[in-house]
Design a protein around this nucleic acid. Structure first.
Lengths: 213, 213
DNA sequence: TATCCATACGGAGACTATCTCCGTTTCTAT
DNA sequence: ATAGAAACGGAGATAGTCTCCGTATGGATA
């Protein structure tokens, strides 16, 4: 419960920055140890597998073992289960955000939006990673994922605004509504016509968001 | 697991015949004990609170304690965590299904559909019960909730078909798409304009499902 | 109403997973 | 080459899950 919030958030901040391409800070301290980085990476990979396979409460000690490290090492890198899930989640999210930029640059507005929404769905379908990850955040009032959500939100906002500007969508539209709907689709992978449903939904959303004639 | 099933059933058979001089009927079905029913009910209520408050992995022993029963009693009624979650979930679902019938009987088609979709969202918003419950099912390939999902599906199908018949919606529509979208909305209760977003989304879905002019 | 026994109860305790602490090892910088 | 900061591993304390079985209770029967 009362889990040293400031210490944790400090660590999170570190993680956030550490995944950036170049160091923006002067930081004066020394280069992070290579074995630490390697272990961190390895844990992330194994965790992704494990969460995909066993759901969001796969055994953390098992993940540590499969990564070839002790439990202590895992918990040093990711103090809580949520922290680990979040890290895995963030990696996926970054791929999606990158794709949004790419589509925006390469396609006409409405098409780009549609393509990205479908990609969003595909990512969830293929990896099944984001769904289990989102589970735990829904359960509690935790503030995780906010940064990641920001990225996704940014991605769809960019695409939607472009489509609004070109007159393909109504101007009084909140792109977040799209997101919510898509996540719903992704969370029900049970039925076999899953993909079809997702595509239909995307088209319904777009059709429902066209400017009034 | 393998708990002497034949011995038990053999014993029951013996009782059946030996104690049955005149009555040809069922000694088998006896009225369920009232204390058992009461306990079951109480556990359900407490569990609903607990899951809402602490997320889907609230301590089961705690729930038992707060219900005034021992852990054994809880586990007899609900052998697994999923079973308990499912029971709570099912209760909510039944309320929704009932409401669908009510709306269908009392309102014009499109209005009834819209009202129910909003109620669906409200239930999730107010109770936050269904969301945590859905989490665990998403994680694994478990077959829980299928019956409950059937009820919900039935509810929205009834309403949607009515709206299709009256010409308010396109005929090539899969109402399940609506469901998926709504669940997505319900799973992101974080933002403050939550309710607004949900209502907008409902209208987008309906607008996007109108017959082509 | 009294009696019987199937049904249900409680909770001690075995088992399993989570997470911490700290002595040891490894890597970077000088 | 060496110092010492950083990272490691894993034993073990803690906490949650679930079972077993002796005891209590309420419905059926007479």
């Amino acid at each position: 419960m009362d889990r040293l919030p400031e210490a944790v958030s400090g660590y999170k901040l570190f993680c956030l920055f550490s995944s950036m391409p170049t160091k923006p800070t002067k930081s004066a301290s020394r280069k992070p140890r290579t074995d630490a980085q390697r272990n961190r990476q390895r844990i992330l990979e194994v965790a992704k597998e494990a969460f995909t396979r066993d759901g969001a409460n796969a055994s953390l000690d098992d993940i540590a073992k499969q990564s070839g490290v002790g439990p202590g090492t895992l918990y040093r890198h990711f103090p809580t289960r949520d922290a680990l899930i979040e890290a895995v989640y963030r990696a996926e999210v970054e791929k999606l955000a990158a794709a949004a930029d790419h589509f925006a640059a390469a396609m006409p507005p409405l098409e780009a939006l549609r393509a990205w929404m479908l990609l969003f769905v595909d990512h969830m379908a293929a990896k099944l990673i984001i769904a289990p990850a989102l589970n735990t955040v829904v359960g509690g009032p935790s503030r995780l994922y906010e940064g990641a959500r920001g990225q996704i939100r940014g991605a769809i906002e960019t695409l939607a605004k472009r489509a609004i500007r070109s007159g393909d969508l109504r101007s009084n539209l909140d792109p977040n509504d799209f997101l919510r709907a898509l996540i719903g689709v992704a969370l029900i992978p049970a039925s076999p016509d899953w993909q079809q449903s997702a595509k239909r939904l995307v088209d319904i959303l777009i059709a429902g968001s066209r400017p009034a004639k």
